[in-house]
């Protein structure tokens, strides 16, 4: 029995090491984008981080099923969406409003910072059906087809949603400008 275990170990160790390396590469390559996607989907930092942790743990457990490294991004997005859906099955969390989250980038001017905060507020205010495809495009640079495949929609629906999302953003920005103009004038 011990002899057998030993021979298995000598096979298992290099396998575990290469799996470990592959996992770490996956983490480094995608954790930032996956977190941002989770954040915009959930609009809560702590919950987003939890979901990202669960996503990567699940990814580790089924890493062997990821045959094609090119598909890693889509694969992770799929896992994350599933984990997020599972969260709703369990319990609805209270999410913090996006405006409570302040993000400072010291290289930005005050004006840019105001604009960025405004854009974030507007992004967060989009309904989920518009926000999600837009974030997939902005964060991961996915094409219309890829977003359609990910969200299980047809491409035209995705294009329409992207169009409406941007249209809404633009209208809101124009409204802001008009308001600001009135204040200034």
């Amino acid at each position: 029995m011990f002899k057998r275990k030993k021979t298995v170990d000598t096979q298992v160790l290099p396998y575990m090491k290469s799996k470990q390396r592959r996992y770490e590469a996956l983490v480094h390559a995608f954790h930032a984008d996956i977190y941002r996607y989770a954040y915009w989907l959930i609009k809560d930092k702590a919950v987003a981080e939890d979901i990202v942790q669960e996503t990567f743990l699940r990814a580790w457990r089924s890493l062997d099923s990821l045959k094609d490294n090119q598909a890693a991004k889509a694969w992770l997005i799929t896992i994350l969406r599933r984990e997020n859906a599972r969260r709703f099955e369990r319990k609805q969390f209270d999410t913090v409003d996006i405006e409570d989250v302040s993000v400072f980038d010291e290289t930005m001017s005050a004006e840019q910072e105001v604009q960025q905060r405004e854009l974030r507020r507007l992004l967060a205010s989009l309904s989920e059906e518009y926000r999600e495809p837009l974030i997939l495009q902005l964060v991961f640079g996915l094409s219309g087809e890829e977003i359609a495949a990910q969200l299980n929609l047809n491409k035209n629906t995705v294009m329409t949603r992207l169009f409406r999302a941007r249209n809404q953003l633009r209208e809101s920005l124009e409204k802001d400008d008009a308001l600001r103009g009135r204040h200034n004038g």
Binding site: Y35, R36, Y39, R120, L123, L134, I135, L138, L169
Partner: peptide
């Protein structure tokens, strides 16, 4: 927007 989407990790 891309810049705005890049929230801090």
């Amino acid at each position: 927007l891309k810049q705005a989407a890049k929230v801090e990790i």
